[in-house]
Write a protein that binds this DNA or RNA. Structure first.
Lengths: 339, 339
DNA sequence: TTGTAAGCGTTATCAT
DNA sequence: ATGATAACGCTTACAA
């Protein structure tokens, strides 16, 4: 369309050289007041905005941070994304979000797109990128890994203790007298799913309860698999007084599945989720859940990248953020009868 | 960290000039098979990726499309974002999402950030940017406006007919015998909120029903205001047999508010939302809602930008995408008694 | 077919 | 204090 205004346009409009324009705009260097004035006037009159691409070329950085998510539209990722966005606000850096779509192929392509665009740093949320590739990336960029535990990359990994979180949820149920607790697990290839299952078993073991494999259903972190879990258990006739889902979305599904069978929550069955998505405050009933500080995680990841950018030598410790329970109305004392 | 591999590295590794490298990589031009071979080998061995910033500088475009949303983490925007992402997949263009945070100031800054980054096109979702600024942007960039109706910019506006959608929802309720229908409106400064209120009134008028202003509560499109609406109406003691919320999120809030008061949906009160967010399939009960094809809207917006980029002269018509009703379980025939 | 060199818009070095 | 000019990494005439 119309050609953009360049620094040359400003220079000729203000009757100075382009270096003078650049100097006035970039702060410290000394420029005579009158010329400075003319430059500023021309800049605002013509609406000049320096070309970030050209600046990036000469500075060797793009003021851009790549963020790899799996699905920008999932409530989980988007809450983290919001935190990342907040973390970079006012820093001059712009996050660029790309999607891996849960597929390693797409992830790899997304990373290439980011590196070609000369991102100055990287935040990788989950995913299945291989250890080798992650190590290479860590060597080239200030990198923060969220939700992945990679041997040798602990210092760039921002994690929550999923084992403890799941154990906490399970203990919560046990303390209320529940003895038959179903667990809707996530996909077995993801570390957080594995850890949460482990936490569930840990709490059971602590309480001296036997582990019944029929009480574990492997879902896929989406709502529909929560419904399937309920159908599965009801068909089997295992007896259940509580369900602990490995994430909130599956808990929502389970809730609907129970409703379809006329089973009340929490009267007949108690329900606990994991993540504490914003929406869980408004479900019916509001869902008790293990609170992951998603927003904070995003912000923390952003701040860490920023810090590494500023002081490349420092290796700030990435303390694991604490998990807490958001206790709401979906849990009650274990009923006499088990379904 | 480590310096990136440049075209010069490839040139010297393959013992050719940098133009030969460029030619091999950029397709058509003729390069001797042996040199071509050496170049390709060096490229893959050294893992060379052309610097997109430098290419952008030469080509005068960044292969980047700016997308202004209000809140990347809202289920509404993220579903559209997913569609946009899908629309650009494989096109070579990369969407860059920025947030306006519902504030005109932030929006303006976000747009500046995008233009400085030399985006080749723009998609603007909602927002409050002034008409003048939008016109300027439309003159400089291939632009698609989603959810805004700007005089003189109809040809770049992708809209749904909110008036008809709201009328459809209200008629649905009327046909089932409901006579006291509350409407939870959105913020009165947003056109879609105004249009939906108008559609509600239109359907009422068609049915020869009087408009009772006490039956309209102004919310803010978030869940909490749905709860407030219910509290407000129950306090007032207007009688109600159905509620039509201007978006799903407020409907979720209303659902919870009713639950708190022991009012059943749909037995006591019917509930209809607007947007048909993915989550509405899993609420309790699943929510009847006016379906906005959010994903499709995003994809369509992306495709339109792509088309304008390819053929700048053409002005493809932006046909309004159709709204339909997603009928689920939150609606029932009007009960005898009104609450 | 290939290499040299100009240029994309900017900053930074260097004289002046 | 200011203006040439050489980069930055790449593509693309233009010569050879």
């Amino acid at each position: 369309m119309t050609r953009a205004v360049t620094i040359r346009d400003i220079a000729s409009a203000a009757h100075v050289s382009i270096s003078t324009v650049s100097r006035t705009l970039n702060g410290q260097a000394t420029v005579a007041p009158d010329k400075r004035q003319r430059v500023l006037e021309a800049v605002s009159r013509l609406g000049y905005q320096p070309n970030a691409q050209a600046q990036g070329l000469v500075w060797g950085r793009s003021m851009t941070i790549g963020v790899l998510t799996q699905d920008i539209a999932s409530p989980f990722y988007s809450e983290v994304a919001r935190g990342i966005d907040a973390g970079f606000a006012g820093s001059g850096y712009q996050p660029v979000f790309v999607n891996g779509h849960w597929q390693i192929q797409d992830e790899a392509e997304a990373i290439v797109a980011l590196t070609r665009r000369q991102v100055d740093g990287l935040i990788i949320l989950g995913g299945q990128l291989g250890v080798t590739q992650l190590r290479e990336l860590a060597a080239r960029y200030p990198l923060v890994l969220v939700g992945r535990q990679v041997p040798g990359l602990e210092y760039v990994s921002l994690n929550v203790d999923n084992v403890q979180g799941a154990a906490m949820a399970t203990r919560h149920l046990l303390q209320l007298g529940h003895r038959r607790i179903g667990h809707i697990a996530g996909v077995a290839t993801q570390q957080d799913a594995i850890d949460r299952l482990q936490g569930y078993r840990l709490a059971l073991a602590e309480a001296g309860m036997p582990f019944d494999p029929r009480l574990v259903f492997e879902g896929d972190f989406h709502e529909a698999s929560g419904i399937q879990a309920v159908e599965h258990w009801l068909g089997l006739g295992v007896g259940l007084s509580a369900i602990f889902a490995a994430n909130d979305q599956m808990a929502y599904g389970a809730r609907l599945g129970l409703y379809r069978r006329g089973i009340r929550v929490p009267d007949d069955i108690s329900l606990v989720g994991f993540d504490d998505l914003p929406a869980s405050q408004f479900t019916l009933p509001p869902l008790t859940s293990v609170r992951q500080p998603l927003f904070e995680m995003g912000r923390h990841a952003a701040n860490t990248v920023l810090l590494r950018l500023k002081e490349p030598e420092t290796q700030p410790e990435l303390a694991a953020l604490p998990l807490t329970m958001s206790v709401r109305e979906s849990v009650r004392y274990a009923p006499e009868r088990v379904l």
